[in-house]
Design a protein around this nucleic acid. Structure first.
Ligand SMILES: [Mn+2]
Ligand SMILES: [Mn+2]
Ligand SMILES: [Mn+2]
Ligand SMILES: [Mn+2]
Lengths: 218, 218
DNA sequence: AAAAAAATTTAGGTAAAGCTAAAAAATAAA
DNA sequence: TTTATTTTTTAGCTTTACCTAAATTTTTTT
């Protein structure tokens, strides 16, 4: 089935907004795809007609099996392109998302298949998100947000879930990136800030706001 | 100026159809972009409004300076992507055009700039067509079609202007590709066929139809 | 259980990009 | 230079994907 760029973006957003059990609401989706609720309703009818979502007017909706499969295909393309942009073209990881937002809609299957091989079949994109394989399967890593790691534990950063330039600036300043080994020294419950140590560097204190976007494996 | 995919395709087609002096006709363009003449007229009005073409109803039209610049940008992207697909992803040259037809519309300037560097700033795409640099300048090679090369001359293939799978099959069979050195042995004026020799291989006779798409430098 | 608020859909509109059929203009033939 | 043919444009319609404003349904508060 050949979908439009818009349809693909909606499907992908529904996938990302979905939390097991609840289904997705129209207002949330509207904000997510940057349109108005009325436009979302129209699209929902179309996606429903194409059997990509389960939809009853006035109720939350979910992706069908087919919709889910398509979402994973788009996400796979998005993340492989992001990996390409960072690893091959030398982009910083916070610059690649917007470009991948376009590249993810290039339709050739053969292209993405060869791109994957060219990149060495990576399992994670530059932000640490898992890349679905051609069957839609993703590696699941048990990862915990930095503010929830017990004191004295030594962990490895493996995902950053805020991709803004400002977050990038902060991380760069402290020399934190995917793969960095961090020892959690202390949590301050007053403001949720966390004191950490990287290698032999002096101690660093990160705010709760920053720590909550840094995910690690133990 | 942000143009739609359609607008870019039209502009590029006008560029390719243009022969110095005449300007381009609506019927030719219609065939070229695979639409009907009526649709072309509508687009011409839009492109004219945007100052991309010089257009008077019922007359042939040409690209403006701006239109020309944009055409070259799209062609630059198209050919750089084709080069990428062949050189990095290992596609055969006859498979890449359709994919590049989509990739050429990805908007990021930074992307194409980095892609070019990554590829080593190639001057020619896999079909032998010159790649415009970021100022729109192209290397011009004086090249002659194989059926017009004088007898006994030794030449080098540097462009194939038919990219069909069938042409690819024929060239592969004879071991002809860009860079192949060919000695023109004899022309038969009866049917325009040409007898050639490659290295120490046995003589080959190419039809006029095939020879006319093989361009060489002396 | 009503009333108020919030979420969602419908109604009516716009712009892009296509289509067919008919009208108009330009070009070629007689 | 008329007439015929071809090319181009107009008119009127369609689909996708948006929009605002109004109506409807669901949910939350009193
Ligand atoms: Mn991304
Ligand atoms: Mn996208
Ligand atoms: Mn091409
Ligand atoms: Mn194109």
């Amino acid at each position: 089935m050949k979908l439009s760029e818009s349809e693909e973006n909606y499907i992908k957003c529904i996938y990302h907004l979905h939390v097991p059990g609840q289904g997705v609401s129209a207002t949330l989706l509207a904000a997510s795809v940057q349109t108005k609720a009325a436009s979302v309703t129209e699209m929902l009818k179309r996606l429903s007609r194409k059997k990509l979502i389960n939809y009853k007017p006035y109720h939350n909706f979910t992706l069908t099996e087919l919709g889910n499969k398509i979402a994973l295909e788009v996400i796979r393309k998005h993340r492989l392109w992001e990996y390409f942009l960072v690893e091959k073209l030398g982009f910083d990881w916070h610059e690649v998302h917007t470009i991948a937002e376009e590249l993810e809609h290039i339709s050739s299957k053969e292209l993405i298949h060869r791109l994957e091989a060219f990149l060495g079949s990576p399992s994670f994109d530059p932000h640490g998100d898992p890349i679905p394989d051609r069957f839609g399967k993703m590696k699941t890593v048990r990862q915990t947000c930095l503010s929830e790691i017990p004191e004295k534990k030594l962990v490895t950063v493996n995902a950053i879930t805020d991709q803004s330039a400002t977050m990038h600036e902060l991380l760069k300043h402290y020399g934190i990136h995917i793969g960095t080994k961090i020892k959690v020294n202390r949590h301050f419950s007053f403001d949720g800030s966390v004191e950490i140590k990287i290698n032999k560097q002096p101690l660093i204190t990160l705010s709760r706001k920053a720590a909550q976007y840094i995910f690690c494996t133990i």
